[in-house]
Write a protein that binds this DNA or RNA. Structure first.
Lengths: 247, 247
DNA sequence: TTAAAATGTTTCACCCTATGAAACGCTGTT
DNA sequence: AACAGCGTTTCATAGGGTGAAACATTTTAA
């Protein structure tokens, strides 16, 4: 039970502080202290360090903390030219132009998924998808794709995760995933967000490894179940073409 | 001389490690240790912590370290809808369409400048400007604008900075800056990069505070000195309009 | 094939340094 | 004027970060 961790506590805490800014732009010192469960003076020191290195700044007006320019600097180097989010962008735009709905690209990160790329529909009513969003793996079409086509080991690890919602019946969920494997795509209708629906298909690289989920999402009155199944073949085909572009 | 620093050493070091990735995508442990001047085992622990929190990942193939998805997550929250880089984007695009050269937006950060927004020229030969780039404050049109229109205090602080290039004659440089204040804009011709030229004008917010520099840059054979002076009025006017949009 | 070099990983004893309680200063509110 | 809320600073304590060294593993050289 000892679970030796070879990490640095002070750094862990500082990064927790930094990650507060993934859910809100501006934080006060006391707010952060409350959220991360540390003493004010500790957080104060951590923030001073983060500020010194440019990872946070203080808003001139409100005096509250915000993300700093070092984050921007790093984000410029996040992706290489051969990364999925770069390589697949043109194909995503093509699919968007074909279907006229918002296209997202998700990868699994432990027991969550992260949207690593998005191109927006140009319709007046549209799904707006922000790159970088971290979402649960338990709901949504792309979640189910990422789980359904994962290695058995990965799938089990995720489902056994303590953060997994207990009310979900694992039996029926697993059956649902197996169904997705056989049809080759997944749909969700007002599953995570009311008024929104999505279709998703897996992207495998040339070695056959699941790399990402390609999702089409939009308002549920336009993206009806019928319409989604109608789009599915085009999405799967697009996902195939994308896979061929990856190492 | 003691200069009490109320920062956390371990965190400082971890952030230094992280900042390595601002100059290159992939790093090996030993490389990083050499760069930041720490022992392998120390860096190993710091990297383990950063990895645990998702700030770095290890490339499946090379086993080297890369930036992780937490950085992407944070970068999505870098700017609020009322931040310059967001508010000024449409006006930047307008200027780009008018002049057909790449437009950049810079802010000063201590003794450097950071490109916080950019829209690219659509010409075949163009200046490519990446958002997040950190550049010296000693050369380039926007540098001179950011210094020329800064508070006297700020200007002096920067020029007194130990990182300031010693070979630059402060007398003539200061005179140059004063000239820029009177003309209202600055130019640079193959100053920082051979083959590149730029014109820049200051953006003041409604309170009259210098917030950013607006720069037009392109290849020096197209953006000749004559052409730059010709463009200047339009750039200044655009910068004025931008300032009116800022609090 | 062996030897050597380089890279990443783990252990461990020492002592530096991160920690949180408490007190302080400041600003705005009642 | 009294109060509440926030950020800042100080300080004694012990908990934890540190780097040397040894180990494991892969890559390069001979």
């Amino acid at each position: 039970m000892e679970e030796e961790k070879r990490t640095v506590r002070a750094v862990e805490r500082a990064l927790d502080v930094l990650l507060c800014f993934a859910s809100r732009h501006e934080w006060g010192l006391t707010e952060i202290a409350g959220r991360v469960g540390l003493h004010k003076s500790t957080v104060h020191r951590l923030l001073a360090t983060l500020e010194d290195k440019g990872f946070v700044t203080r808003d001139a007006a409100t005096d509250k903390y915000r993300l700093g320019l070092s984050v921007l600097e790093l984000s410029a180097h996040l992706f290489r030219s051969d990364d999925p989010s770069v390589v697949l962008l043109p194909e995503m735009e093509k699919l968007r132009d074909e279907i006229s709905e918002t296209i997202s690209l998700y990868v699994r990160d432990r027991s969550e998924r992260v949207r690593i790329q998005a191109v927006q529909s140009m319709q007046a009513i549209r799904r707006v998808a922000t790159v970088g969003a971290r979402l649960p793996l338990s709901v949504g079409a792309s979640s189910k794709v990422l789980l359904a086509f994962a290695n058995d080991g990965d799938r089990e690890t995720v489902l056994a995760d303590p953060s997994w919602p207990a009310q979900l019946d694992l039996q029926t969920f697993a059956k649902q995933l197996d169904e997705i494997v056989s049809t080759g795509y997944a749909t969700s209708f007002e599953e995570r967000e009311p008024g929104a629906a999505a279709v998703a298909a897996p992207i495998f690289n040339r070695s056959g490894k699941l790399v990402a989920a390609l999702a089409v999402s939009g308002p549920s009155n336009r993206l009806t179940p019928d319409r989604m199944h109608e789009y599915a073949p085009a999405i799967i085909e697009s996902a195939h073409r994308m896979g061929a572009l990856l190492g």
